[in-house]
Amino acid sequence: MKRLPLRLALLEATRTLDEAGVASPRTDAELIAAHVLGVERGRLPLVPLVDPPVVEAIRQLVAERAKRVPLQYLTGEAVVGGVSVQVGPGVFIPRPETELLLEWGLKLLKGREHPVVVDLCTGSGALALAVAEARPDAVVYAVDNDPSALAWARHNADLRAEAGDTPIRLYSGDVTDDTVFAELDGLVDLVLCNPPYVPEGTPVPPEVADYDPPHAVFAPEDGLGIIRHVVTMAARLLRPGGGVAIEHDETHAHSVPPLLEVRRVLTDVTTHKDLAGRPRFVTARRV
């Protein structure tokens, strides 16, 4: 069986995905190839030749991705902060932009021993598990109001625990309920949240429209409905010196920061840009 150049398979895959309108055709082609080969993406140059069945497996997954099936559905996982979580129908797929929010939070925790962290609207549990991975001494709480998302989060948490990683404390609850985590009021070092924030009626890519649960994507009040409650919750949960980071829509650059600025207990409100240079999340500290 004659082996074939992986480079040519990647070129074909990239062209197919580009013609299908996939936003990052080369990246997705390489991630699919890495998944099929069972290697890290950065090690693909070390695999110059592959067997024909490998090329065919790559081609089949690329064909599915060209139909705009999410890449994470095809590989069965999403990666946040170096932590891989399993995703599928019924749970929001974490995006690369959330890595920056995580980085900010971990930087805030430097020098703090046994910090308390709360991940609101946890979804797959990716953020909470990434914090627990980076800070094994942290006590990490995570909450979501959707049973399907919680099932995925529990599954991912159990997988990490079986691997010997620090467990997280997972709860069912709604951020619009002012009694959620009432026992933690004034005790939390870091609040993280990637809530539903896309304004209702906004056109979204097929990967989002056809696969992400709508209630995990869209929010009322021009996308601010859930964020308002998250701000309220963060203000009561944080201890002095603690911090909050909330992801938001790129159209919220001038509407989300004021929601935090009007809170007397919050200061140092800062807007941050995503990987594409668009305003994506806001942070603040507790006085």
Rank of each mutant, 00 (worst) to 15 (best):
A182C: 02
L31W: 15
D210A: 01
A23H: 12
L224P: 02
D178G: 00
H114Q: 12
P214Q: 05
L44F: 15
A209I: 00
G88D: 04
R278S: 08
L74T: 14
S84I: 00
P257C: 00
L4T: 11
L260G: 10
L127K: 02
E64W: 09
R43P: 02
V175K: 10
R65V: 12
P213I: 03
D249K: 07
A13Y: 04
D18Q: 15
A235C: 13
V175W: 14
G242W: 13
K273H: 15
P48N: 06
T270M: 12
F281S: 08
I227Y: 13
A20H: 04
P214N: 07
R15N: 06
V198L: 05
L170M: 11
H229G: 00
V116K: 11
K2D: 09
D119N: 01
G111S: 04
P94N: 10
L192N: 09
G105S: 00
G88T: 01
R7E: 12
A235D: 15
I227P: 06
G88S: 05
D174P: 08
E19D: 13
R26C: 04
P167F: 08
E99Q: 13
H254K: 10
V91S: 08
D119S: 01
V36A: 11
E162T: 10
P279S: 12
E133K: 11
P70A: 03
V256E: 14
R112E: 00
V262I: 14
E162G: 05
A284T: 12
R65G: 09
V208Y: 03
G42S: 14
A209S: 10
L120E: 03
A134D: 00
V269F: 13
S148Q: 15
P258A: 01
R112C: 00
E12A: 11
L150I: 07
T232D: 15
N145L: 12
A209Y: 01
D137E: 13
L17E: 05
Y171I: 01
Y197N: 05
R112F: 02
G81I: 05
A219P: 08
Y73E: 09
L237C: 08
H114F: 05
D51C: 00
L44Y: 15
G125A: 00
K110L: 00
V256M: 11
T176Q: 11
A234N: 08
R7K: 12
V231T: 06
P213V: 04
I227A: 03
R154H: 12
A182I: 02
A29M: 06
L8G: 03
L8A: 09
L102D: 07
E113P: 00
E103R: 14
A284M: 13
A245V: 07
L101S: 00
R59S: 13
M1F: 12
Y211Q: 03
P48E: 04
L108W: 15
V139S: 06
R239M: 05
L101Y: 03
L74Y: 14
Y141E: 04
A23V: 12
P70T: 11
D189K: 01
S148T: 15
G125R: 02
A126D: 07
V79D: 06
D274F: 10
F92Y: 14
H229N: 09
A20D: 09
R278W: 09
A149P: 11
P52D: 02
I93C: 03
L120Q: 10
A219F: 10
H248M: 15
R264I: 03
L8Y: 01
A151C: 05
K107S: 04
G82Y: 11
V47L: 10
V85S: 03
G21E: 06
L31I: 14
R26N: 09
V180R: 07
H229L: 02
R236H: 06
A138S: 05
L108T: 01
